[in-house]
Design a protein around this nucleic acid. Structure first.
Lengths: 158, 158
DNA sequence: TTAGAATGTTAGGTCTGGCTAACTAAAGGT
DNA sequence: ACCTTTAGTTAGCCAGACCTAACATTCTAA
């Protein structure tokens, strides 16, 4: 079992993975800018992650994720993405706010809740799109504060 | 504007409010048991909250929330409840897990997201309950891994 | 090829939020 | 009334995660 990381360490792992994905050479400076912390904080974090076998980092050199580090980073990223999709696609929250919330909540969501949220998104995507679906009804409700006319008050037998 | 509290301080405030609501005299011991920390940690936290004007606590005495402390505690509690309802009622997560998640996420959810989640619950409660509603369809999907027969694949024109 | 700029590290400090050990106050039973 | 138990406090320690200041290395461009 991979060792549990703190929210902070998860942020560092995620940042390294992100920077890699963008092709940039992963340097201390970049990480520090990405996370809004000073370089010495990054150095300290990398030492810790290195001790835990999650990154490779030689003095003054580039930063690389180990396979374990990569798995850990992917896990954080996945949580981030699921939350982000839920916040934007279902709750209709603006991308800026959604990203901020995802960044904070990605560290406290449990695997079970994550899985359910994911299933919920699948369901929302799979269930009827045609005509005002329940999701569209929700958006109407958000905007006008009341249920849309198309939202059946009484059942429509079958 | 009330001063922003840390997750930890919010937990103390919430615990005090909870104990009060249950009629129990709010003592250091109780708080410590409720939060799973040792008594000296509680004493320290109460000193800080007292400095911030959120609780009243005289040496060896009972603990009381000030009006500001009460507002802060209510805010945390409200976040907790909205999350809890969403997790249990919409995502169908078991109460135990849902409580744990709510306890962690209540500290990182933004006011906007909270508000949307709340609206979502209102909507889910208001929109058609008769016949398999979209929420019931979701539960079916959770259980059987596929959309229920009653989930229209094609639109039903009006 | 070498000096200066840019980048990175080390040392040491702060703040938060836990802990244990040792002390003090309050409560309660006989 | 007093002596023990229980509750609460104080003091002091530790770890995480940040910071600044000072020092070291690497890169780059004249």
């Amino acid at each position: 079992m991979e060792k549990e990381q703190t929210a902070s360490m998860e942020d560092y792992l995620e940042a390294v993975a992100m920077l890699r994905r963008r092709g940039k050479a992963v340097r201390v400076k970049e990480i520090s800018q990405a996370l809004g912390v000073k370089m010495p904080s990054v150095t300290a974090a990398l030492k810790k992650l290195s001790d835990d076998g999650l990154v490779e980092h030689e003095r003054y050199g580039r930063v690389k994720l180990t396979p374990a580090g990569d798995r850990a980073a992917k896990s954080v990223f996945h949580r981030h993405q699921v939350l982000l999709r839920f916040l934007t696609q279902v709750l209709s929250i603006s991308p800026q706010i959604a990203v901020e919330d995802a960044c904070r909540m990605e560290h406290s969501i449990s695997p079970i809740t994550l899985e359910r949220l994911s299933k919920f998104l699948e369901f929302a995507g799979a269930c009827p799109r045609e005509r005002p679906s329940w999701l569209e009804n929700y958006k109407h409700y958000l905007e006008y504060g009341q249920l849309p006319a198309s939202c059946p008050e009484k059942s429509v037998k079958e």
